[in-house]
Nucleic acid binder design. Structure first.
Length: 644
DNA sequence: GCAAGGTC
């Protein structure tokens, strides 16, 4: 009898895709009891080498199988002081709704020689793999465990993954286990403390849970940014920061000088090197000196070739930011759509930090696959006929997934409206990466007029190259400049004063927020969108629509609760004795670094958990001691709302 | 009633 191999994917759609490719479409489908999504697919496959042809059962889990929670006696909010959750015993159990899935794996394992794990190739996937392994071993202690390594569901790629299995990465699984325990203990302890304390303060908070997790991230980041002196932008801390700047903004009037020359039937505007000043009298005096000089002298004529660079290979964060901007989809929608496109085998795995292509990947072949398309097929052909360029390389590589790229062509009428938009973006971006930069000629003219300097710039686009396919970038020729020669004198046609008012910064937008979260290591590329959705749901921020129609932008405005919490925590943290250690424990980035230490084997899971808990415990005790600061801030901002 | 991360 043929040996049996059990294969388990992270989600049903991948199980189906893998089964389809390995079996060539000839497989049997069996439902399992107790779960409508998970199916068992059965077929034969030749794994080669020592395995040879085996009968395969391909099934899946639905994300994580297990969850971590406190022992029963600690579950009630009043059962213990919140601080004791740092030590309270915890248990890993299979989630109730996942029990049938776990049963299925244990049963199938009984008859299997080996388990092949087909979870996504990232850290969480490695942990989910370990959960699957535990169930399989519970069913069959002697089962051999392997792991398939793949980053898209293109047929040849999947088959190769089946032939070249590797081992599960225990370090990565441990790193995730550490994160899970820390998130639970810290999140629960602070949330209970905060909620129990604040709900007695104002009626508005009575029924509310004031969750801690996302909040702490936000507050701490704003502090850290301030410390670094670059308090430019956004999460709640970012949102509040910007909000306060908008609120406190007072417009100021400024004045400047503009110089105009009409020559060869063209009107040239020269811009002042000082841009503008806030003192009218001074500007008037400067203009008078210009006029007194009568003639202006050309001090610089710079003509040089210039180019606009093609974009870098596409990462998740970039996809979300560009999507918000150009596709008019919020980041959560984009990720859902991209996930669907990946599952159907049209694009590569959409969660990646990598912005460089591997040398091994056959990019031209991927370009060729786009030939049938009526919009960009011709462009793809031109690339292969000689215009192809090796993509630029960015500086990021997560060593798990390539940049997001199309893996096969799909006819637009097989996609819904949003899928079409996202697929088109991914393809155009990919083709742009494989194109040449746009080339042009820039001209810079500088003049001296009296004691003041002015300049003007011209641009002629000579070769559009990647711009032809990447419609999201704009780079256009300016009006052509008349001829100027260095040293020549001329009398300006016009020179006068203009005035204007400084305008308030605008509230934070989604792409800005994503950019900041990314720069500060908040969340994973897959979860940033959810964090944003969560802070809306928790009513820490509200959304405001600025402008109307197609050009409208969503901006974030903190609620009173949001402002109160930021100010309150600012005050709480103010008094921490050691200013270095204060900011550290809150930081997700710190957590990320420690997880990487586990992944590289320099620290154990237990070490990291203990050290982190010690740090957070210190902050917790401090917060408890200064809880009145938090209460005071809530009173200040929320008391008025109680009537309404 | 708490977290974050998977996925349906």
């Amino acid at each position: 009898m043929a040996r049996k191999i059990l294969c388990v994917a992270e989600k049903p759609a991948i199980a189906r895709a893998v089964a389809t490719h390995l079996s060539g479409g000839a497989f049997q489908t069996h439902a399992i009891r107790g779960n409508q999504y998970v199916k068992n697919y059965e077929f034969d496959f030749n794994f080669g080498g020592a395995w040879g042809t085996c009968s395969v059962t391909m099934t899946s889990v639905v994300g994580h199988l297990t969850g971590l929670d406190f022992d029963r006696q600690y579950k009630g909010w009043m059962s213990c002081p919140p601080g004791s959750l740092f030590e309270a015993p915890v248990q890993e159990t299979v989630d109730k709704d996942k029990l049938p899935i776990a049963d299925n794996i244990r049963n199938q394992a009984k008859y299997s020689k080996a388990l092949f794990i087909w979870t996504d190739c990232d850290r969480e996937g490695e942990h989910i793999g370990s959960e699957v392994r535990n169930q399989a071993k519970a069913g069959n202690a002697r089962i051999e465990v392997k792991r398939a390594k793949f980053s898209n569901t293109e047929s040849a790629h999947v088959r190769r993954a089946a032939l070249e299995p590797v081992n599960l990465d225990e370090y990565q699984a441990s790193a995730v286990a550490a994160r899970i325990e820390l998130d639970l203990r810290i999140g629960a302890a602070f949330t209970r403390l905060q909620t129990l304390q604040l709900q007695t303060v104002v009626a508005a908070l009575k029924e509310k849970v004031i969750s801690y997790g996302k909040l702490s991230i936000m507050i701490d980041i704003s502090k850290r940014i301030n410390k670094l002196g670059s308090c430019q932008f956004p999460t709640l801390g970012f949102v509040v920061d910007r909000y306060l700047r908008v609120q406190n903004f007072k417009p100021e009037t400024f004045w400047g000088i503009k110089v105009i020359l009409s020559r060869e039937g063209k009107k040239v505007n020269f811009l002042w090197k000082r841009v503008h000043l806030f003192d009218r009298a001074v500007v008037t005096m400067m203009l008078e000196r210009c006029l007194l000089a009568k003639q202006a002298r050309v001090t610089k004529v710079n003509q040089k070739p210039t180019s606009k660079w093609r974009p870098l290979p596409l990462t998740t964060v970039d996809l979300q930011m560009m999507g918000s901007r150009f596709l008019r989809l919020d980041s959560q929608t984009i990720m859902k759509v991209a996930e669907a496109l990946y599952t159907k085998g049209f694009i590569s795995y959409p969660r990646t930090e990598t912005d460089q292509f591997d040398k091994g990947i056959d990019l031209k072949k991927l370009v060729e696959k786009q030939y049938p398309d009526s919009s960009w097929g011709q462009y793809a052909r031109e690339l292969i006929d000689g215009k192809f360029r090796t993509p630029r390389s960015g500086r990021h590589n997560d060593k798990a997934h390539p940049p997001i790229h199309p893996v096969s062509w799909v006819s637009p009428n097989q996609l819904n409206a949003n899928e079409k938009k996202v697929y088109e973006f991914v393809v155009r971006r990919f083709l742009a990466c494989c194109s040449d930069d746009a080339k042009g000629q820039s001209t810079e003219i500088e003049i001296q007029y009296g004691d003041e300097f002015f300049h003007t710039n011209g641009l002629i686009v000579l070769e559009r190259n990647y711009l032809d396919v990447y419609v999201y970038d704009k780079w256009e020729s300016s009006q052509q400049l008349p001829n100027f020669e260095r040293g020549e004198l001329f009398e300006p046609t016009e020179a006068n004063i203009f005035d204007g008012k400084t305008t308030a910064p605008s509230y934070l937008t989604e792409p800005e927020l994503i950019g900041l979260m990314d720069a500060n290591g908040i969340g994973t590329d897959a979860t940033m969108a959810e964090h944003i959705a969560k802070i809306k749901e928790r009513e820490y921020v509200a959304i405001n629509e600025r402008g109307g129609g197609r050009s409208s932008v969503q901006e974030f405005i903190p609620t009173r609760l949001g402002v109160a919490l930021v100010e309150g925590y600012d005050n709480v943290v103010e008094g921490l004795p050691n200013s270095v250690s204060l900011s550290k424990p809150f930081l997700r980035k710190e957590m990320e670094l420690r997880m990487l230490e586990i992944c590289s084997g320099t620290k154990t899971r237990q070490e990291v958990v203990q050290q982190s808990l010690d740090m957070y415990r210190e902050v917790f005790i401090h917060t408890q001691r200064r809880i009145n600061m938090l209460k005071a801030a809530c009173r200040k901002y929320l008391v008025e709302e109680t009537g309404s």
